[in-house]
Design a protein around this nucleic acid. Structure first.
Lengths: 202, 202
DNA sequence: TGGATAAGCGGAACCGTGTTCCGTATCGTT
DNA sequence: AACGATACGGAACACGGTTCCGCTTATCCA
C-alpha cells in the first residue's frame, strides 16, 4: 500500500526505454526484436523484462496516451457531429488513423499469441465502452441497424487495419468506410442480416 | 521440358506429406512447427523442404483444390442468384466459410512474412479475377457503388476472417455481411465515399 | 562521510523453431 | 549385380524470446 518509490536510475531507465521502444516501433514495427530495443536504449535485455514483463506491457505503455485520447474524444464527437452515425464514423476514423500509423500494431492486437493478451485486454477495456456509447446513440437515432455489437465492430475495424500502410493497393480507411455505411438500417430489406444468427454454423 | 518422372519413393513421400500437413494444419493451424509435420509423416525435415521449399508451397498444395473450387463457383452463382449483389454476397460467403475453418490461414494470407509471399500471390491470382467478375456484374447492375476494387475487397474480407473461430464474440460472417451491404450505392448521399481518394493521407 | 544493504543492471546461457547441408540409403537402369 | 542419380535423415546453424545470477550502484543510517 505504501508507495516504495523506485530508485532514481530505475525511473530514468524506464523513461529511456519508453523512448527507445517508441523509436524502435516506428522504425521496425511493434515486433522489433527485444535486443534491438535494448541496444537503442543502451541497456541489457534483462532491464527491459524487469520493467515490462511482456511485450504487451511495453506497447501499452508507449501508446497509452494516444489510446486514452481516442477514448476520451468520443463524447465531444457526439455533440459536435451532425448526426450520431456521423459521430461514430468520425470516431472510428480517429481509431483507424491511430492504428494504420503504427506498424504491426493491428496485427498484434488480433494475435492470439499469449504475449499480446494484455494488449488486447487494455485496448478493448478502454475503447469498447467509448464505441458502445456512440453506437448506442446511433442505434437509438435509427441511424444504425439494431443488434450491432461494439466489441464485434471494434474487432472488425481493427482487422481491417491489418496490413494497411504496407500495401498501396489497400486503403483501410476506404474499406472501413464501406463497413460503416453497411451498419445503416436497410431501407427495404430483402436480405436479412439484422440481429445476425443466420450464419448456419452448427 | 521433358517430364523426368520422379522416383517412386519421392512421389509417395509427397502424398504422405500432404496428408500429414493437412492433418497438422487442422490440429494446430498452418503455423504448426515443421518438425511436427515431419514427425506426423515419419520423415525428416529435409524431406519437407525438398518437396515444399517454403511453407507457402505446402499450404497452397494442401488447399489448392478448395481454392480452385471457390474460384470456379463464381460464374454459376451469377446465374443462379436472384441478383448480382446477391451472387457476390453468396460467393463471398463461400470464401469466408473456407477461411474461417482453416486456423491461422487468414492471418498467414495477410502476413508480410516473406515465407507466405507465394501463398498471398496464389490466392490473389486465383480469386481476385473471380471476385472482379462478380463485382463488375453487380456494379453494372447498379447494385454496388462504382469504384469498388476487387483486390481491395478481397483483402478486406480476408482481414475480417482473422481470429474468427477462436473468439465466440466475433462472428466474421456477420461483420462481412455489414461490409457487403455497405458496398451498395448510397441512396441520398451526404457523405462521399464513392471513388475513394479523400482519405487525406499525403 | 563511509559502510551496509537492498534494488537494479548486464548479458551469458538456454530454449524453441526455421533452414541448410552433407553423408548415407534407396531407386531405377544397364 | 553394380552403378549413378535421386532422395532421405537429422545434425548443425541462425535467430529471437526468456531466464537467471554475479556484479554494480543508489539509498539510508550511524
Amino acid at each position: 500500500m505504501a508507495a516504495p518509490r523506485k530508485r532514481a536510475d530505475a525511473r530514468r531507465n524506464e523513461q529511456t526505454l519508453l523512448d527507445a521502444a517508441g523509436a524502435a516501433f516506428v522504425a521496425a514495427g511493434v515486433d522489433v526484436p527485444v535486443r534491438d530495443i535494448a541496444a537503442r536504449a543502451g541497456v541489457g535485455v534483462g532491464t527491459i523484462y524487469r520493467h515490462f514483463p511482456t511485450r504487451a506491457d511495453l506497447v501499452v505503455a508507449v501508446y497509452r496516451h494516444q489510446v486514452e485520447a481516442c477514448a476520451e474524444a468520443a463524447p465531444a464527437l457526439l455533440e459536435s457531429a451532425a448526426g450520431a452515425h456521423e459521430a461514430l464514423a468520425r470516431w472510428i476514423d480517429l481509431f483507424v488513423d491511430f492504428l494504420v500509423t503504427k506498424h504491426g500494431l493491428a496485427e498484434a492486437l488480433q494475435s492470439d499469441d499469449a504475449t499480446y493478451q494484455t494488449l488486447h485486454v487494455y485496448f478493448l477495456d478502454r475503447l469498447v465502452p467509448a464505441c458502445a456509447h456512440l453506437l448506442a446513440a446511433a442505434t437509438a437515432a435509427g441511424e444504425v441497424r439494431p443488434g450491432v455489437q461494439a466489441y464485434e465492430l471494434m474487432r472488425g475495424i481493427g482487422n481491417l487495419c491489418i496490413g494497411a500502410g504496407r500495401d498501396p493497393q489497400y486503403d483501410a480507411r476506404r474499406v472501413v468506410g464501406y463497413l460503416i455505411d453497411g451498419l445503416r438500417p436497410r431501407p427495404q430489406s430483402d436480405r436479412r442480416l439484422g440481429t445476425g444468427g443466420e450464419s448456419g454454423q452448427t
